[in-house]
Simulated scan of single mutants.
Amino acid sequence: MDTLGLLVHPVRLRIVFAMSGGQTRTTSDLCARLPDVPKTSVYRHVGVLADAGVLEVAREERVRGAVERHYRLRHERAAIGADVAAAMSLDDHRRAFAVGMAAVLAEFNSYLDRPGADPTADRVGYRQGVLWLRPDELTMLIDGLRSVLRNVVDNEPTPDRSPHLVTAIFFPAGEETPHTR
């Protein structure tokens, strides 16, 4: 299965999100984190991701006579690279965006369904705005955001840290872009 077909799937994308925090997780852990997904689906998609090398077994241990695998995410295998993105058709981009948004919506609903969810106290934010940018300014903005995120992306889980899902979306908002003029 190619990278696009592998990652552009709502359940597999949510598993990648859940594994992105740097810690290892068992399939049972993932089932608990994705309570709206049938356990059989989680197990099946963990197998697909492991077979493709996106997840790797960090360790195994015996639990009540069964072998429990602890998986870790291989970040370099869990992304659609620039070469694949450049080869995607417009319909591929449409499908990938829809799956990504569906996964973000499912994660947000999962957050809201937690006991004690408090978007104000948790500083939940979702905003949309238009920025007028030249291509060089857009590049500068994206590079600046990458730099800021790079400073915290390798943070280890600690008792005083909680995971936050960050989604950045950039696309021209008007009818004309420099490429269509």
Rank of each mutant, 00 (worst) to 15 (best):
L30H: 02
T3M: 06
A78V: 05
G144H: 07
I15W: 01
G144I: 07
I169D: 09
V48S: 07
D29H: 09
I15Q: 01
K39A: 08
A58H: 14
E76L: 03
Y71L: 11
I15A: 03
H70R: 14
F17K: 00
D160I: 11
I80M: 11
R146V: 12
R161K: 15
R161D: 06
D91I: 04
V67S: 15
P172K: 00
A168D: 10
D2I: 09
L112E: 02
A58I: 01
D160E: 13
H164F: 08
G21R: 00
S147Y: 13
T120K: 12
T24I: 04
W132D: 07
T3I: 08
H45I: 01
L145S: 14
H164R: 15
L149K: 06
R62E: 15
A85K: 02
S162F: 00
L133T: 04
L30M: 06
R64W: 07
P163W: 06
V63D: 09
R127P: 01
V63G: 01
D113C: 10
V48C: 07
I80A: 05
R12M: 05
A106M: 05
S162E: 10
V8T: 12
P115G: 04
R59F: 05
I15M: 05
D118C: 09
A102C: 07
R77V: 04
D36R: 01
L7M: 08
